[in-house]
Design a protein around this nucleic acid. Structure first.
Lengths: 111, 111
DNA sequence: CTGGAGTGATTGACATGCCAAGCAGGGCGT
DNA sequence: ACGCCCTGCTTGGCATGTCAATCACTCCAG
């Protein structure tokens, strides 16, 4: 699945395995194996492939089954963002989440 | 960097290494090593951690340096998420944003 | 004080990612 | 026919991801 997608993208870009290898600094044998699904590439490899093929990393991740399609726009985006926000202190995070949840809960009750 | 972020998220969620281990089906020693930056986890591991901690996979990828900084989710991720949240009314959105901004501002002043 | 039950960390072994070297075949010019 | 350069693929081995077993520590009940 992922491998096939990468191979297709490479061919669309008219690149040989060795050319892609040069761009990504990943050996061509390994690229071959990844494209045929014999190996699950590491994060670093996946990223450099995405860059070289001018494919948004997100799309590759989606192909890899990492992002479940609409996840980024899903219901939990706000909670996730708050939790990950480095500009908030721990106490602030907790408080903000509590407020947010109470809002959502209120709206749910009203229908 | 990535490891520290995962550790912080785990502690926010009030989980021990073994509890997270149970949720993710990843051994607790390995989680420990990942959190301390001794190993770069595979894609599969990263995703199961993201799922278990209810963190958007994208946010984890950004922390992992996968998404180059502001490509998708930068400092404004929280604001964006709040604005896009369909579960909030307009008034709630405004209020939440105001609280959020005041937090960030406070922290900036303190240095 | 002693003994569980919880916490995170270390270690040694096995599985897998990844690469350098080399192989087999297909065009194309001489 | 040869030889060259290109293509993708196979293989052996080192580096790294991952786990089972175990350790040291803290805390609290008996």
């Amino acid at each position: 699945m992922l491998g096939g997608f990468i191979r297709a993208q490479r061919q669309v870009a008219n690149l040989s395995l060795r050319q892609l290898s040069a761009l990504t600094e990943i050996s061509n044998p390994y690229l071959s194996q990844v494209e045929r699904g014999l190996h699950e590439p590491s994060i670093r490899v996946l990223k450099s492939i995405a860059d070289a093929l001018n494919v948004s990393a997100e799309i590759l991740f989606e192909q890899a089954g990492l992002i479940t399609g609409t996840e980024k726009l899903g219901d939990e985006a706000t909670e996730s963002a708050i939790r990950a926000d480095q500009r908030l202190t721990e106490a602030q995070r907790t408080a903000l989440l509590a407020v947010y949840r109470s809002y959502v809960e209120d709206n749910r009750e009203e229908g």
